[in-house]
Nucleic acid binder design. Structure first.
Lengths: 172, 172
DNA sequence: GCCTCCATGTAATTGGTTACATGATTCT
DNA sequence: AGAATCATGTAACCAATTACATGGAGGC
């Protein structure tokens, strides 16, 4: 169950509310995991029941801020090293690429161009994030390492899209 | 619902049984989508009810072979062009990378080395598949294009792992 | 006063995994 | 005869999305 550990990981860094966690899944974490608030709030309640997180503050508008407990961090560390059971990633965008042959060449090319556009914007966003300030803490350095994976991934697929457009030309 | 369209895409290429489809998800498709037989068989029944696939043959051991109908291919084409609603990919292996700072440096390095090993074997498998014969049909050429995305993805992350190991050295 | 964003929750439904259950064919 | 593989299905459970529902705080 990765959602649980994603929440623990975020809360191990700093205390956050369910609302802030929801927004974290729309940000830098979006390409590796995501979740809606309707899944997050009940999961936070379960994590609290198990003593893996603590309610550390209550603010305006009913805001509840949680932090990971030592037991929570322990559980997260355990999960980090327990790699088997990882199932292959799921990616509808690249599932479609397997079936491009069913489209008219013009539609297939348009699809690949749209993918390229998407990779281009994401890459720019990541590169901008990487450019601002150099990491100092272990946490910041690890984040930079994760970001680099995203950058190389986006760059590789952007290059691929260019190659693919050439390869899919009907004339060839 | 991507499973439905993955099945349609596979059956658009050639008629297959539920068992063969199950194995297809363990093969080249594994890194973009996967499903167990317990999900596939009921879905095939639903697809048949909707007239998107036909039962074209029954063989030994109760084997049932299905093929996509024209309506099925039409539905698949529609899905190919309807890209919104794609949610970000999910990848527990790279979710862990965001939390590497929580591990002892030695454990973090071991984790990255394991990722590298995984990318190395997958890359070798893809490159071997790419090396055998040159594609002739539109279907084969599109498959080669999809394979190339896999190759570049694996290569990029293998390179990343090497860089990350250097970057995570405690001495730095 | 109204709009936007902050903030949390529940209910209904669909998607996906694990476990249960059965049996035929082929190979050795 | 026994093992491996082929082959299909159902049931129970867990994970995730969509829709429903409510209200406070801050800006204009």
């Amino acid at each position: 169950m990765s959602l649980r550990h994603a929440l623990l990981g975020l809360l191990a860094d700093r205390p956050m509310s369910g609302y802030q966690l929801t927004r974290a899944f729309d940000g830098s974490l979006a390409h590796v995991w995501s979740a809606r608030h309707s899944q997050i709030y009940p999961e936070l309640a379960r994590l609290r029941d198990k003593g893996l997180i603590d309610l550390v503050d209550e603010g305006p508008r009913g805001r509840k801020t949680y932090a990971a407990t030592p037991e929570g961090i322990e559980e997260l560390r355990r999960w980090m090293l327990e790699t088997d059971g990882d199932r292959g990633g799921r990616d509808p965008a690249y599932l479609r690429v397997f079936f491009l042959w069913l489209l008219e060449p013009a539609d297939a090319a348009a699809y690949v161009r749209r993918l390229a556009e998407h990779h281009r914007t994401t890459l720019a966003r990541y590169e901008a994030a990487a450019a601002e300030g150099s990491p100092t803490t272990a946490r910041e350095r690890a984040f930079r390492v994760a970001l680099e994976a995203g950058i190389r991934h986006e760059r590789a697929l952007l290059d691929w899209a260019g190659w693919a457009l050439h390869e899919l030309e009907p004339s060839r």
